[in-house]
Design a protein around this nucleic acid. Structure first.
Lengths: 140, 140
DNA sequence: CTACAAGCTCAAGTGAGCTTGAAGTCAAGT
DNA sequence: ACTTGACTTCAAGCTCACTTGAGCTTGTAG
């Protein structure tokens, strides 16, 4: 499974510990992965690139059927929220890119003038910070 | 400085330890930050959102003059590489978004058919993996 | 039959980016 | 003078996503 998926064995066992994937055991105690696990791993890798944490991914995986291969309907339930998440991140990056030429270029990259750099954004707080760059409406 | 920048005091001291910012001391031993530090912190926060590590940011900061406020020329030396970095990440996200509707929607999210999920990409290795999603040319 | 690669478990370690706690100093208000 | 709160250092702790190591078992090729 590690070879097929490109994910290290240690990571596979880690995912299993965390309940993201499952496995059956051969008589020897060795893991035998059901076919569906390959797809679940694909899902995990994909979701990680989008920026979800393993906990979030576990949540999402729980919305998928464990018994059958997920079908078009199953996926479409997920894709909406993911798409908007991707869109938001792209929008942020575009604002950052704009800031790189406009804002920095004009010498405005200073915390007193630009109200930049509130890491509270990461924690979801509001207050002073790079609100324009990270998504707040542009001040009048 | 923490108030002005929105960055926690603990983080400021951490940055100082790591050599990203400097400070002078009052007779009391308290830190007094030169004006330029505010701008350096803005830089750090900005660069983090783009996805640079603190080590990379330190590297970038070393290209800026320590003595005077960075001018337009100083910034433009940096902006090119940053812009392309942003562009690459946006391109990846767009591929992921496309995969979300095209690839997953069509049931192709499986490691055997899609050659998905090589976390080696993260480590810069090549081989089997989500090469199309993460940037390799689409296979014929 | 014997190597030896590859699997197993469980605990501990890694690295990035901070935060928290303990123990102490300094400055301002009443 | 005293209290309060902000500052100091240094070490230790935390989250995330894994990796590594020790010690042991299984499976297969020659």
């Amino acid at each position: 499974m590690a070879k097929r998926s490109g994910v290290a064995t240690s990571a596979l066992r880690f995912y299993e510990d965390r309940g993201l994937i499952g496995s059956e055991r051969a008589g020897s105690g060795h893991r035998r992965y059901p076919r569906a696990v390959l797809r679940r791993i694909a899902f995990i890798v994909f979701a990680q690139r989008i920026g979800l944490t393993l906990d979030e991914i576990k949540e999402e995986l729980s919305k998928l059927p464990g018994d059958h291969a997920p079908n078009r309907r199953d996926w479409s339930r997920l894709s909406a929220s993911w798409t908007s998440r991707i869109d938001e991140r792209i929008a942020e990056l575009e604002r950052l890119r704009a800031g790189l030429t406009e804002c920095i270029g004009c010498g405005c990259l200073s915390l007193d003038r630009c109200q930049l750099a509130n890491p509270g954004d990461r924690a979801g707080r509001s207050g002073p910070g790079p609100r324009y760059w990270v998504g707040d409406p542009r001040p009048a």
